[in-house]
Amino acid sequence: MWKHIASNGLTLIGVALFLIGGVILWGQGSYTAEGPLDEAVCLRVEPGSNMRRVTAQLDEKGAIASPAIFRMGADYTDKSSLLKAGSFLVPAGASMEEIVDIVTRGGASTCGTEVVYRIGVNQVQTVVRELDPATNDYVEAAKFLADEEPAARYLEVREESDTRYRVAVAEGVTSWQIVNALNGLDLTGADLEEVPEEGTLAPDSYEIRPGDDVATIVARMDERQDEILEELWAERQDDAPVNSPEETLILASIIEKETGVAEERRQVASVFANRLERGMRLQTDPTVIYGITRGQGVLGRGLRQSELRAATPWNTYVIEGLPPTPIANPGRASIAAALDPDDTDYIFFVADGTGGHAFAQTLDEHNRNVARWREIEAQRAAEQEAAPEN
């Protein structure tokens, strides 16, 4: 009898172990299997949160098949105590194992809100953007200019610990404009009193953190420009129209200010290369403007004839060759164009009314292009004058 009882007991234990093993295997399979999400979602983990709260958030979003298995999996892999605060993108179909890794891995937030401070030639703009997890694209939530009242949404996200911040510097902005804009932000730490040399700051997008000193941010821009210049100078053409990295920045800055059309940069560069080779003056308006403003703001009007004739170190209607310094901070593409211009016979160009330029090899051809541009200007002026009457 006892043998029978013992035999049945062993059988029951075996069955129980088998069932337990099956449950464990099922749980492991569920933990690593594809999740129920049809579309990606953004999960925000508040500072001081715990795995129980995060589990409830995920369950509410329909991201996990079993809250119990999710928490057991996090506990079993010793990750429950590694939870990180932030906003995290949970992809469609993410397994519970993958989600645990996402919220415990650390690093920068991968979802949520970012603030971009755009430093342009004519204005400084703050833009609040929020990631749409379904499309993985940022959607503009608010924007305002530096001299306007901050948008309400901006003030809200400034209070959120996981908001990310970037400074985006446009090509052709001067060093003074960059420093002046950064000093004016309500996010940065200590101001920078001394303006870096013109042309030495790379137009690009830079991640920043609240409290970063302006000098720290500017140093990164300076380092980036050094890297770009060193790389492109090493790859320069033998017949490049410049003789040093310093001259490269000067010519690139003029190219940058003369055209906003990417496809034209090397053509514009060819005009200046041909003029330098022939001993002609560059005669470019942006250098005259820089001689007036010294890069501190925008002139905001047309040039006067007296200003075109006035002697300044930057007035290329008066001086021979290149001016002594860059007139703005050129981007990578303009630096590359200065070191490798198109092979053309162009020595003139003028606006063509489309945003680009009409190029010419002879003065007669150039004069015809100028006459067409004058007609376009006159027509636009007449249309503007007539507009209020309509």
Rank of each mutant, 00 (worst) to 15 (best):
W2N: 14
S7L: 15
T11C: 13
G21M: 02
I24Q: 10
G29S: 12
A33V: 00
L37R: 04
R44H: 12
S49R: 12
M51K: 05
T55A: 13
A63M: 08
S66Y: 09
G73T: 05
Y76G: 12
D78H: 10
K79P: 00
S80K: 11
K84H: 13
A94K: 06
E97Y: 11
V100P: 00
T104M: 04
A108C: 03
G112D: 02
E114Q: 15
V115M: 07
I119L: 12
E130C: 08
A142C: 09
A146V: 09
E149Q: 15
V169Q: 09
A170S: 15
V173P: 07
G189Y: 10
A190I: 11
L192Y: 04
V195P: 05
V195C: 07
A202S: 13
E207G: 08
M221K: 03
V242C: 14
I255A: 06
E263A: 15
E263F: 02
A269K: 09
F272P: 11
N274W: 06
R281H: 11
I289N: 01
Y290S: 04
Q296W: 09
Q296C: 08
Q296E: 15
L303M: 05
Y317L: 06
Y317W: 06
V318M: 05
A328D: 06
R332P: 00
D342K: 06
T344I: 03
G356Q: 01
A360R: 01
A360I: 00
A360V: 00
D364F: 00
R372D: 15
A378C: 02
A386Y: 05
